[in-house]
């Protein structure tokens, strides 16, 4: 009898869990399987286009001991962290400005920052190619005005171009996250700190920043995620000098046709990104809660 009760209960709990099955299937087929297979692939080897299913760490060793690869990895981290930082440094004060100075047109101001996100990413990057190129707007204007005889060549196909473009595409993300946090800082707290004699600078340091730095950190993290794995920007405006790690991964898929190495590089990139995000999370916990 007892066993019958157990099966009944088991069946009931199974029926309750039944709706979760498609969700579990989705997670297994489209998340778990591809990642496991990528991991397996990264441990295989190809030689002259033929895949050998033997387990080896050669790809990882190749990915982290090759000088060129390492240099590009270092550059990728430097550019991505730099661009995400600059974007946050521009967007956070801007969000604070919108929260404090604007009331009637606040929504419009926010919308105007977000609208570029709805224009194709590819197009926004491509536009910088038109602006920065040797025949681009800046250079042709400089030459037309007689300010320069030759175009400024550092602007396109350079680290500078990649950095500028990534900062550009990051600003809306950093802005939205900063704004969401700053908007929730109650004005009453600022009034209270002013009444207590704190200067605006001190009020910012002791009230606003501690309550909103998590938003800034989320914005920074979003921007970092976008920049560190980007392929389109370096390929479009980076040239040889601006090559990033993402370009290397895509090359393993295309030109070089070494999928196992590409898979190993992808996993290196994932681990690195995870480590950077963990660092960000560690240093920017909110002090106190708003709700």
């Amino acid at each position: 009898m007892a066993s019958v009760a157990v099966t009944h209960e088991g069946r009931a709990s199974f029926r309750r869990r039944l709706p979760l099955v498609p969700l579990a299937a989705w997670a297994a087929l489209l998340v778990l399987a591809p990642n496991v297979l990528m991991l397996v692939y990264s441990l295989w080897r190809t030689r002259e286009g033929v895949l050998y299913r033997v387990f080896t760490f050669d790809n990882y060793i190749a990915a982290v001991t090759n000088d060129v690869t390492l240099a590009i990895l270092g550059r990728t981290v430097a550019i991505a962290v730099g661009a995400a930082l600059l974007a946050t440094a521009v967007a956070y004060p801007m969000a604070w400005f919108v929260v404090r100075r604007l009331s009637k047109h606040r929504l419009l101001a926010v919308l105007l920052v977000v609208v570029p996100l709805w224009i194709s990413y590819l197009v926004r990057v491509y536009a910088w190619k038109i602006i920065l190129g040797d025949n681009g707007i800046i250079n042709s204007t400089l030459i037309e005005l007689g300010l320069r005889d030759e175009p400024l060549s550092f602007m396109l196909y350079s680290k500078f171009a990649v950095f500028l473009t990534l900062t550009y595409v990051s600003i809306p993300f950093a802005f939205v996250a900063s704004y969401a946090a700053l908007e929730r800082v109650p004005a009453s707290l600022l009034e209270a700190s002013a009444d207590a004699g704190a200067s605006p600078a001190r009020a910012f340091r002791t009230v606003v920043w501690p309550l909103s730095r998590q938003g800034a950190a989320i914005g920074f993290a979003l921007a970092l995620l976008l920049c560190i794995g980007d392929y389109l920007t370096p390929a479009m405006v980076g040239g040889l000098e601006g090559t990033m790690f993402g370009s290397l991964i895509v090359n393993q898929f295309g030109l070089t046709n070494n999928w196992p190495l590409g898979a190993a590089m992808s996993i290196v990139l994932l681990l690195l990104t995870g480590a950077l995000l963990a660092l960000v999370a560690r240093f920017t916990r909110t002090e106190g809660t708003l709700d």
């Binding site: 869990r17 969700l23 794995g229 898979a263 992808s266």
Partner: peptide
């Protein structure tokens, strides 16, 4: 806990860099 864990798993492809998702799916 099961739905929360599954949800977290399902969200992963929206966060990872596009080329990582693309490559892992191409392999699969």
């Amino acid at each position: 806990a099961a739905p929360r864990v599954l949800l977290a798993a399902v969200i992963i492809p929206a966060i990872v860099p596009g080329m990582v998702l693309g490559l892992s799916l191409a392999i699969t």
